[in-house]
Design a protein around this nucleic acid. Structure first.
Lengths: 330, 330
DNA sequence: CTGAAAGCGCTTACAG
DNA sequence: CTGAAAGCGCTTACAG
């Protein structure tokens, strides 16, 4: 019933049109001179026949794979998952636009995971790191092998090409926005203090106070709030200390802070301001007047992937790129 | 400083050893006769030199890619994410073991997304569907193109090879376990009633009552509980109706049920039993004596991938495979 | 058991 | 502008 028609090859096209494979190849790729007339005949025919070049063969001839690998943490927790997922989505989108595909490789912190296999098997032209560590075995491995790498987020490694949102400036601007409203008792709840991103955000926070010639009250700053109980505890203390505003370092913290505030008093959000870094994960829970800096993990992935492909194409790339952010009230 | 040594090829190996490429190829692949002595010399040399065959070239020669694609929903919500993520992890693990790699393709319900590109570009040998729909454009597309497909979960499409946990038997056994303890007023809170999995689980629930010659009290059964408020509402009603036990359809429901029960009375878990289908997502929240049926999304992915690779290898495969489950108290 | 040769489907100097 | 030929790095009938 169903005939499995065999795939058309460049040879078939050439034969039918009475030209050489060379000519067909050139007409398609756009490299090398072909008369406009011949080009049109070729393009028209392949369009009509729905001919698609075999990317694998093309790759072999050019010593390329048209694949990139994305290193995903195998050990990330539920909170971080949406970030990586959105990031991945953006990467795939950018890759597809340039006819690249994306191989997923899982690694645990510090390990190489499936990376070695994929590299020695020569299945990718480059790699994007979605998580950078201080001692990054994967980054080192790739550097030694001369495989193009770009990282999502900030890394201390000055040789590693990296793309990140400008967390410091963002937090500076967010805080400034609060201070300019006359708010002085600003609380902050953040996660792991050793993370680069946490430090950058706090840096911006402190910058704002400095610019306004105000002291930052460290008794209102809480780091390491990773569990619900810790966050709620911090909120309680901040309320006791009469904080006028709470700056949250991420979605999860923000959600718990809002939840806690409402639990204490449904109308508390009218008096205590909440500000947050917001990845857009759980918008439905937020409903008050929350000042946010919005980040777009998908766009971050998109830009990172494009940068990697530029590197693969041999373009000169800035080592560090910072993406813009927007302030918004949600 | 750093010399970029060019990759060893089969020709280099052959030349060094003074044999033909054919022989080297055969020694490595194990196909075709080669004297034991020659084979050893080859294997030893390539091991010493750390030679790895170029998988792309191998693929071209065999008209294979050694890639599979995994279709991921671009529009899934946070609750479902861990399932897909774990599934993906298992798929990648199984693939790597057989020297395959995994391309990720995002699709929105009903669409083809990047699938078409990847198929016409001939970049994969098969596809795993992580979500099956009633009207599945992707499944149809692949079927028409004769590309091997295997689905995670249950599908109504009788031609589609599918792997799933045995939700019906699991829920039967779980419910039976409760009934045998003398519990009679069993409540159930489930999600979207139109999902195959929800129906299967409810089917098992009802089966248990039937086997015990007991009626199922539908006033204790709640479907469509997707929001927190709905779940909490259901819990309240079940408490009013003096339910002795609440069977939860998934992790999220279970977490909210436990949370709600504790909120009403910290010790309520001692009197009201909770039973749940459990993917192991947020164990830390669970702490009581909860009867669970545990499912392992990672293993599901692992098995599914292996099945797909078997299909690709031309093996005969059962259309439907059901994975075992375990009852546990956590 | 072993090898020369053709082939997988492209690209790209090189020559015309 | 166009093409014959060699090459990318493997595999695999076919012949010995």
């Amino acid at each position: 019933m169903e005939t499995v028609e065999k795939k058309l090859t460049i040879a078939d096209v050439a034969e039918y049109l009475g030209v050489s494979k060379t000519t067909v190849s050139r007409a398609i790729s756009g490299k090398g001179r072909v008369s406009e007339e011949t080009r049109q005949r070729v393009l028209q025919y392949i369009d009509r026949m729905d001919y698609k070049p075999n990317v694998i063969a093309k790759g072999l001839a050019q010593s390329k794979t048209f694949n990139i690998a994305v290193l995903m943490p195998a050990d990330c927790d539920m909170q971080e998952l949406p970030f990586f997922q959105n990031c991945m989505c953006g990467i795939c989108e950018a890759a597809a636009k340039r006819d690249y595909d994306v191989l997923t490789v899982y690694t645990t912190a510090g390990g190489l995971g499936g990376l070695e296999r994929i590299v020695t098997n020569q299945k990718v032209d480059g790699v994007v790191l979605t998580r950078t560590l201080v001692e990054d075995a994967a980054a080192d491995y790739l550097k030694n092998r001369n495989v193009p790498v770009v990282a999502v987020g900030s890394s201390a490694d000055a040789e590693l090409i990296q793309i990140d949102h400008d967390h410091r400036s963002a937090c500076l601007e967010l805080t400034m926005h609060l201070l300019k409203q006359g708010i002085r008792k600003v609380g902050m709840i953040g996660g792991n203090e050793t993370h680069v991103v946490t430090r950058n955000r706090f840096g911006g926070f402190a910058d704002a106070f400095r610019l306004m010639n105000l002291p930052v009250d460290m008794s209102l700053v809480y780091f390491g709030a990773e569990k619900v109980a810790e966050i709620e505890q911090a909120v309680e203390e901040l309320l006791e200390k009469k904080a006028e505003c709470i700056v949250c370092m991420d979605d999860m913290i923000c959600n718990h802070v809002i939840h806690k505030l409402r639990e204490v008093d449904v109308n508390l959000l009218n008096t205590v301001k909440v500000a947050s870094f917001y990845g857009g994960v759980s918008g439905s829970i937020l409903a008050g007047r929350v000042e946010t800096v919005e980040f777009d993990a998908k766009k971050l992935g998109f830009v990172t992937c494009n940068t990697l492909l530029d590197v693969i194409d041999g373009k000169q790339i800035a080592v560090k790129q910072l993406l813009p952010y927007k302030l918004r009230t949600i």
